[in-house]
Amino acid sequence: MRRIISVLMENESGALSRVVGLFAQRGYNIDTLTVAPTEDPSLSRMTLVTHGNERVIEQITKQLNKLIEVVKLVDLTEGSHVERELLLIKVRATGAQREEVKRTVDIFRGQIVDVMPNAYTIQLTGTSDKLDAFIESVINATTIMEVVRSGVSGIARGEKTLAL
C-alpha cells in the first residue's frame, strides 16, 4: 500500500535526522522524501512517500506523531489530494532524435529548459506515475544521461489544510 504522509514540523536542526532515523531504526520504507520551510520560517513541511501494510502505516503515523518536533501530520492518501513531482532529465539529442524527443516532451507537456548541440535538459512535473511513463517513453527515443527527481509533494483537495 503506497501512502503519502504530509508532516508539519518545527524547522529545527536535527528534526529531519530524527524522521530519517526513525524509519531506519524501525525498518520502515522511505520511497521519497521532500522537505522545505513554509511561509512561516519556524515550520517545515515534509512530504513522505512510504509503503507497507495497514498496521505498519498506522505505526509510522503514530511514531512520527511521537517525535517532539512534529506538530501535525496527515495521511493524504486517505482523502482526495493533489500530488506532484518534478523531474529534470538530461538526454542525448542528435539528428532525428531531436525531433522525436521534442514530440515526446510535448505529449507529456514538459519543457525543454536547456539546449545543447547534442543534448536536451527536460523539465516535467506530474504524478510519479506520469514521470515513470515519460522516462519509459523517452528511453525508446534516445539515451538518458542523467535523471533527477524531487520526490513527491502533496496537498489535500478542497478546504482541508494541514496548518497550525
Binding site: 498496521r55 498506522e58 505505526q59 503514530k62 511514531q63 506523531n65 511521537k66
Partner: peptide, 8 residues
C-alpha cells in the same frame, strides 16, 4: 498514554 503502544 502512548498511542503507538496500542495495537503495536
Amino acid at each position: 498514554i502512548d498511542p503507538s503502544s496500542i495495537s503495536k
